[in-house]
Simulated assay, not measured.
Amino acid sequence: MSKVVFLSNVDRRFAMMQVALQQLQQENLLSNDSVCAKLSDNTVWNGEWQKLLEDADIILIKWMGAGIDTPFFKKLLPFINKHQLRYYIDAAGTEEEEMVSGIEKNDLEKLKE
């Protein structure tokens, strides 16, 4: 079963994804290891994040407002690239509005729906 990690600094998106995650876990469509986590400009990268992300099948991030040049993202991006993790980052309002790795174009379109 797939492990999905969803990270966001957007309250509404976080709440919607939390509800969806719980439903998918109840239906046994996603691993119980899948999580939604709330980020902020002050989120600190540490070993707990590494442990959470290292075996994720996909990481989905919705980030709005501040750029992704926060200390957290400066550690996150090299980590997910080094571990060749699949990810999609929707960073609306930043220079890098969209970053993706390991996701086919047709699957990416489904993520945006």
Rank of each mutant, 00 (worst) to 15 (best):
Q23E: 09
K112V: 09
F6N: 04
H83E: 12
F79I: 07
V35I: 13
L30H: 00
M99L: 14
Y88A: 09
D90K: 03
L30A: 04
Q23G: 04
M17V: 09
F14M: 13
D69K: 08
Y88I: 08
E104K: 13
I59T: 02
G47I: 01
T70K: 02
T94P: 00
H83Y: 14
D33L: 07
E104Q: 10
M1Y: 10
A66T: 14
I103Q: 02
S101W: 04
G102S: 02
D55M: 11
L7R: 01
N32R: 15
V44Q: 10
G93E: 07
S31I: 05
L21A: 05
Y88K: 05
L108Y: 14
K110L: 14
S2K: 14
F73T: 04
I59V: 06
L77F: 14
M64H: 13
S34N: 01
D57M: 13
K112A: 05
N32Y: 15
L85M: 08
L85C: 01
L24K: 03
M16K: 12
N42F: 13
K82L: 07
E104T: 09
E98P: 01
K110W: 10
D55V: 07
E97H: 08
G47S: 06
N106A: 11
N46P: 07
I58Y: 02
E109N: 15
M64L: 13
A15S: 12
S2D: 12
A92W: 09
D107V: 11
K82E: 12
L24F: 06
E54C: 14
A15Q: 05
H83K: 14
I58F: 04
E97I: 14
L52C: 15
A56V: 03
L53N: 04
Q26V: 06
E48V: 06
N28F: 11
L30C: 05
L39G: 00
I80V: 15
N32W: 15
A56F: 06
V4G: 03
R13V: 14
E96W: 09
V35D: 04
I61R: 02
M16L: 15
D57I: 13
Q50E: 15
V5T: 02
I58E: 09
S2H: 12
K74P: 01
Q22K: 15
Q22E: 15
L85Y: 09
F72L: 01
D55P: 03
N81I: 07
W45R: 01
D41I: 10
A37G: 05
D11H: 10
A92Q: 08
K110I: 12
Q84K: 11
L24E: 05
I89S: 00
A92V: 12
